[in-house]
Design a protein around this nucleic acid. Structure first.
Lengths: 125, 125
DNA sequence: GGGCTTCATAGATGTCTGTCGATACAGAAG
DNA sequence: CTTCTGTATCGACAGACATCTATGAAGCCC
C-alpha cells in the first residue's frame, strides 16, 4: 500500500456531491497556507501537457471512461509513464479508476473539476 | 534573456477581452499537443502554494492591486523568491504589473482566470 | 499449471524548479 | 551626484519531477 493520502491535506471532494457552487473563489478572500497547499497539488496535477491531454481524452470518450490501453496508444510515451500520470491525476482526485477484468477504466470526477473551476471564477474582477 | 516565451505556444488572452465564455471545455473534446502545452504552463503557474496565495492576496486587496512590499511581508520567504513567483504568474498571463514611482503594483487578469475556469467546467459530466 | 495480456511499481537518470544570497537597476530624496 | 528604498536579475544548489527499462501483480485462456 505505497500510496496513502493523508486525508487532512487533500481537500478533495468525495464523490460527486452537488455542493459545486459554494463559490470559495480563491480570489475574493486570502486563503491560508493549508488550503493553498492542497489546491496547489491539484493545479500541479493539471500542469502537465500529457495529463491535460489524458483528461481530455477520458472526458471526450463516449461513456466518459477510457481504459489505459486506449490512452497509452495516444501518446509517444511508455506505458509506465502514462500509468504514472494517471496516478498523479487520481491522487489529485481528478479521476477515478475501476478495474473490469483485465482492463482498468478511468473516468473524470466532475465535482473535482467544477470545484477548481469555481475557485478560478472571479467574483467581480 | 533567459526566459523567453515563444508567442505561439502560449495561448494567453491579451488584455481583458470579453470573449470569456467561449466554452473550449478541455473535457468535451480532445485537445492537441500545442494547446496542452500552453494550458499546462498556466496550470503549472497555479500549482504552487505560494503563487496561489499571491493571487489570493492580490485579488482580496481593495482596488484589486498590491505592491510587492505588501506581498513580500505576507510570507516567510525572501524578496527575490516572491519576485520570482510573481514573474511566473505574469508570464502565465494571470497577473499584470504596473510601476508607479518606486513601487510596482500587481493586479489580476480576470479574463485569464475565467478562461482557465471555463476549461475545467464539465459540459455534462 | 503455463502462458499471455493489461496495468502498476521499483529503481535509475537527466532535467526542471523553488529557494537563497549577492548584486544590479529604477526612482525618490537629500 | 550620492544615497536610500523598492524590485528585478544572476548564479548556485538541493529537492522534485518526467521519463525510461526491468520487473511484479492481476486476470483471462489454453
Amino acid at each position: 500500500m505505497p500510496i496513502q493520502l493523508s486525508p487532512g491535506d487533500l481537500p478533495v471532494v468525495a464523490g460527486t456531491g452537488p455542493d459545486v457552487c459554494a463559490r470559495p473563489a480563491l480570489v475574493s478572500d486570502p486563503i491560508d497556507e493549508a488550503s493553498a497547499a492542497g489546491l496547489a497539488q491539484v493545479f500541479r496535477a493539471l500542469g502537465d501537457p500529457v495529463r491535460l491531454r489524458l483528461l481530455s481524452l477520458i472526458g471526450a470518450r463516449e461513456g466518459g471512461e477510457a481504459c489505459v490501453c486506449d490512452l497509452t496508444s495516444a501518446f509517444d510515451l511508455s506505458q509506465p509513464t502514462i500509468s504514472h500520470h494517471l496516478r498523479v491525476l487520481r491522487e489529485a482526485g481528478l479521476i477515478d479508476s475501476d478495474r473490469r477484468g483485465t482492463w482498468v477504466y478511468y473516468r473524470l470526477v466532475p465535482s473535482a473539476l467544477e470545484r477548481m473551476a469555481g475557485l478560478l471564477s472571479v467574483p467581480l474582477g
